[in-house]
Every structure is written in C-alpha cells, then in structure tokens.
C-alpha cells in the first residue's frame, strides 16, 4: 500500500492538483523539525477542499511547500505536488516563479500586511496583469480597474489610486482576490482568508471567492482552523494533526461519520448554533514535539483515548468507505471494504 496517498476514488474529474507523500522538515537550532510527513490529497477543477487543523498542524506549511515559498530553513524531503503534469516539487525556482501567480495563486491572512504598503492597489493589480495576465502597458491600468470592479469594489477608478492603509480589511482582501485571480489561475490557495475580518465581511469575502471559482472553474484549497467555515464552504475536508493527514472525506460524511478520534474531538469542541457549553468538550493533550527523532508513528496516539498496541506501527491512510480516508488503527467506524479505485 502506498503511504498516505489520497484515498479519494477517481469519481472526481482529473485533479488540478495532486499531492503525494509530501514531507517537509525545518532545520532549527533545536534540531530537525519534521513539520510535514507524507501528506497526500487532490483537488479537482471547480472544487473547494478545506485543510483543517489546529495551529501547528501543518496546514500552512503544506501550502507554502506547494507554492515553493518555504522559508530558507525548510526543505521538502520527499513527495510530489502535481499541477496537471508539472511536479511543482521538482520544478526549478525560476520556472516556479512563472507558475506562481499564473497557474497557482495564493491569498493570505491579514491582507493589509500582504499588500505592498507604498504602492497603490491599482498599480499592484496592474503589475500582476503585466507579468501574468497578458496586459500591455497601455491597457494594464484600465484592466486593473476592471478587476477591482469584478471583486465588487464600489467606485473602482477612485479606489485604484488608494494605498492599502486607506482601505478597510475587507476591501484589502478583495484587492488580494483581484490580484490572485487576475491571471485566471487553475488553483487558488486561500490561507485563512477571513481570519481577522468581521463575520459579515467574512461571508461576503467567501461568497466572492466561491463566485470567482465558479466563473473560472479554478480549484480552491481553503486553509482554516474553523471547522464550521470549512463545513459551510468546502465540498471536501482534510483534517491535519501535527503534520499528518488523519482524515479526508467529503464534508457531509466527515461531519456525520467522523472516523478518526481526533476529527470527532475537533467536532465536539466546536461551538454550534444550538447546544450548551456543557455539551462541548476540549481535545485533551497537546501536539507532540516534532523535533524528537522518535516521534511516534501515530502523532495523535499520546492524546488518544482509543489507543491500542497496534498504534506503535506506521499508520497509513486507508479508505474507510468510498471516498472517505482515515489514518487510524482503531477508527470510530468499522473499516469497510477498500473502495474501488482507492489504493489497495
């Protein structure tokens, strides 16, 4: 059996991005941190897939590794990230820079920090259009205004001349989205795109991202710590814990029949529209120290109440029902027949 390869059957159209066995380590003064260990998933055109987990679970590292934006201490130690036929992991940096912005785009948490503070937003959009969007010097400015209009910014001709500090957080995130979709990318990675925004703005920004995805058919990876946001916006949810992917399923199946104990704990800890405080419970314990050479094979084992002797062995993502993968030796739901098309 292939390790952690996506347990998703090929019911989806040809994936835009397929990540296989992606591993990342950081060299730090405290030793080698194995931040990501054999992570795999795929996302198809027009689909939204959410990567969910606590801080330190490796969600953002996954995105940065795919984009080739890991900081200097980080190294991809194995695996592939296939964008169509291109393996982004094996692509030399110069070529990757051409793919970034054109075929894969990313939006970040705290848009005001991600934008250039001393350049007007119109110019920043025009920059991207010139480099990746096939614009000419003559029409770049007009197209930038058009792009602002498309993301629902009122009075775009005036706003194009504004600096990021003159715009609200929600407006800045719209500008980021305009920059990201300027070149009509195949894949959009949204890293906590609405954290720090008001709920009302949050809803509007997420609507906009989904509307853009629907119009252009781009695939979206939504990185969030908010399970409720993922539940509302994504067709699939992959749950990460300490650099491992522990469960990967379509949203309805994951929420109604969580199979990994961690997923179930996460759901039980998330406040809902109904229910009292007494009905919620926390996830006991903390993340393991990823610097240790002898990290347990199951990184959740130390926190897990369903731990058995089998948990000392290497745990792999297995299809639990068709399209529902789980990496656990003692899952909450009995393992069904391996799904068709899933790795045997």
């Amino acid at each position: 059996m292939m390790l952690a390869s996506h347990a998703v059957p090929a019911a989806t159209p040809a994936p835009v991005l397929r990540v296989e066995n992606l591993s990342v380590a950081f060299h730090t003064r405290g030793g080698l941190v194995r931040a990501l260990d054999r992570v795999g998933f795929s996302v198809g055109a027009g689909q939204t897939m959410a990567l969910v987990g606590e801080s330190g679970s490796g969600k953002s590292v996954t995105a940065y590794a795919i984009m080739g934006l890991l900081e200097a201490a980080g190294r991809i130690t194995g695996g592939r990230a296939l964008l169509g036929d291109t393996d982004l992991v094996a692509t030399p940096p110069k070529e990757l820079a051409r793919i970034r912005g054109r075929r894969v785009a990313m939006i970040f948490q705290n848009p005001r920090a991600a934008l250039n503070p001393i350049r007007t937003v119109g110019k920043q959009i025009a920059d991207v259009l010139l480099r990746h969007g096939g614009a000419t010097r003559a029409n770049a400015w007009d197209r930038a205004i058009e792009a602002l209009r498309n993301v629902g910014i009122p009075d775009p001709a005036r706003r194009a001349k504004a600096y990021p500090f003159e715009l609200s957080g929600g407006m800045c995130q719209r500008v980021m989205i305009a920059i990201a979709v300027a070149a009509r990318p195949e894949l959009l990675i949204a890293d906590e795109p609405t954290t720090g925004l008001d709920v009302t703005t949050q809803a509007v920004v997420m609507d906009l991202i989904q509307q853009m995805a629907a119009e252009t058919g781009m695939a979206t990876i939504l990185i969030t710590h908010d399970l409720a946001l993922a539940a509302e916006r994504a067709g699939r949810i992959a749950v990460m814990h300490a650099g491992h992917m522990v469960e990967d399923a379509d949203t309805a199946s994951l929420l109604s029949r969580p199979s990994h104990p961690y997923t179930a704990r996460l759901i039980a800890a998330t406040p809902t529209a109904a229910g009292s405080l007494d009905s919620l419970s926390s996830v006991p314990g903390g993340l393991p120290d990823l610097r240790r050479a002898d990290i347990p094979h199951c990184r959740y084992a130390a926190r897990c109440e369903r731990r058995t002797d089998a948990c000392d062995q290497i745990v792999e993502m297995r299809a639990h029902t068709p399209g529902h993968g789980v990496a656990c030796w003692n899952p909450l739901t009995p393992m069904g027949q391996p799904a068709e098309g899933a790795p045997a």
């Binding site: 929600g170 709920v199 809803a203 409720a228 539940a231 998330t270």
Partner: peptide
C-alpha cells in the same frame, strides 16, 4: 439578522438573510 446569518454553521444550514455589502 445579517450578523446571525453570516456566522458559519457546523450543520451547514443557512439562515436566509440578505448579505451585508458595503461599509
């Protein structure tokens, strides 16, 4: 009403209400 409707819900149910646009 708009505030309540904008909160993401785990059960995926949506409270119908107009989105608050603008500032």
């Amino acid at each position: 009403r708009s505030l309540v409707a904008a909160v993401p819900r785990l059960d995926g149910e949506r409270v119908e209400a107009a989105r608050l646009t603008g500032e």
